[in-house]
Design a protein around this nucleic acid. Sequence first.
RNA 1: GGCGGGGUAGCCAAGUGGUAAGGCCGGGCUCUGCAAAAGCCCUAUGCGUCGGUUCGAUUCCGACCCUCGCCUCCA
Length: 468
Amino acid sequence: MALQFHNTLTRRVEPFAPLDPDGRIVKIYTCGPTVYNHAHIGNFRAYVFEDLLQRHLEYRGFTVERVMNLTDVDDKTIRGAREKGVPLADFTAPFKEAFFQDLETLRIKPARAFPCATDAEHVARMIAMIEKLVAGNHAYQAEDKSVYFRIASFSDYGRLAHLNLEELRPSGRIHSDEYEKESVGDFALWKAHDEADGDVKWESPWGPGRPGWHIECSAMATALLGNRLDIHCGGVDNIFPHHEAEIAQTECCTGEKFVNFWMHCAHLMVDGRKMAKSFGNFYTLRDLIDKGWRGREVRYVLLSAHYRLPLNFTFDGLAGARSALQRLDEWRRRLAELASAPGTGEPFPAGDEDKFGAALDDDLNVSAALGSLFDLVRETNRAMDGGELSPARVRGLLDYWERINSILRLEEESSEIPAEIAALLEERNAARAAKDWARSDVLRDELLARGWVAKDTKEGTKLTRSIT
RNA sequence: GGCGGGGUAGCCAAGUGGUAAGGCCGGGCUCUGCAAAAGCCCUAUGCGUCGGUUCGAUUCCGACCCUCGCCUCCA
């Protein structure tokens, strides 16, 4: 099956082909976090989905150029800095650093660039774009000195979200100052400085102020990737208004179609309901790590359901992920032992029977892909039990695992056995050889206390790290 | 009110106009000094409800119920 993805613009699954005339480079822009706190696992669902997308494209031979922005100026960051009494940059810096650590914990491949909204060159570009929009009659300065995009000037506005602008119902999120706009749907490109912003301001042709949220993505995406993108990702809640606004601004500036494929992932829920601090079901990645869960376990949970379906996150699910991963670990370890003798691998899968890759080609059907992997695990375990797997075949299977793991990145943490642990193991082996079971059991407990599980198998005792 | 996701075993979750992948849990077996671990095997006459089309519907059509979300700075 040819590679195909769901496109929010058309609400259809469409064959994917990059803009690159050589068909090699894929340009992706992904909306990143607002750094006013630690990102929560719902945020990371989107980033893990984007990671899966990138890695699968790479599996298929594309070179992915991906950019992810960091929003480091907005109402929330300004408020946070004020409450703490520190400059904005000092307030956001630790959250930026934490975010990068979290990406690493979840084994998310870093983007090629992580531009920040406050980067001088990007602020300059935002201002330049706004000037162009004003000159082109797509934007205007209102009485409150802010500059707004005139949605009436862009006939496609509402196309991505499939919203009929006449039927929009006012919500509580509209601020009182917005009646200064020509239309209630007009959104801010440049926000005039006010008291609450403190010293957070940039000079502009419209007076001091700061960029609106939407324009930052348009400026940074076009600056780093060009006027046209292959794919733009985000959570479904970004469809409207954020991505709608991005299309309007960017296309009015460039006169070109901004994005070919819009891909949005559904929300994460926790225990069957929206994650919210008031429900007591709000978790950052750090909360889970502190509870003893591993990054790859969280990654597995976030990865294992299709990205366009709501994902219900539970601790039962996390425990299930742990068990499933151990099954994969054990399988890989068995293969590795059987493959230890040198030799040539027998290519696997034979021909084009790559069910795993084929499933992902179909709009990242990761559930089907994992299903095929576990089928393979069971079949080959059975063959290994019966001693029917040749070393060459085993090496081929290991090679296949390496390839699909370049997408999944679910391998176990490498665990070198420390000398003292090895010494305890030696001692226990001696006790067992002497059939001194009491001593053997004491040493097993000792190993366990130090975080290692001893398993006596017919090939001898094996050590693995205990969980938590 | 408008727009859009979902409802498949105890839990999570693929999928198809022809009789339900996979994972977790549970049960059985094997291995084993014991234990643990691991491996194998088993586990939905059923796919929200009610109608319709069809030789045949979980799949297509219609109505309805439930649930989650978006509707102007939430991934």
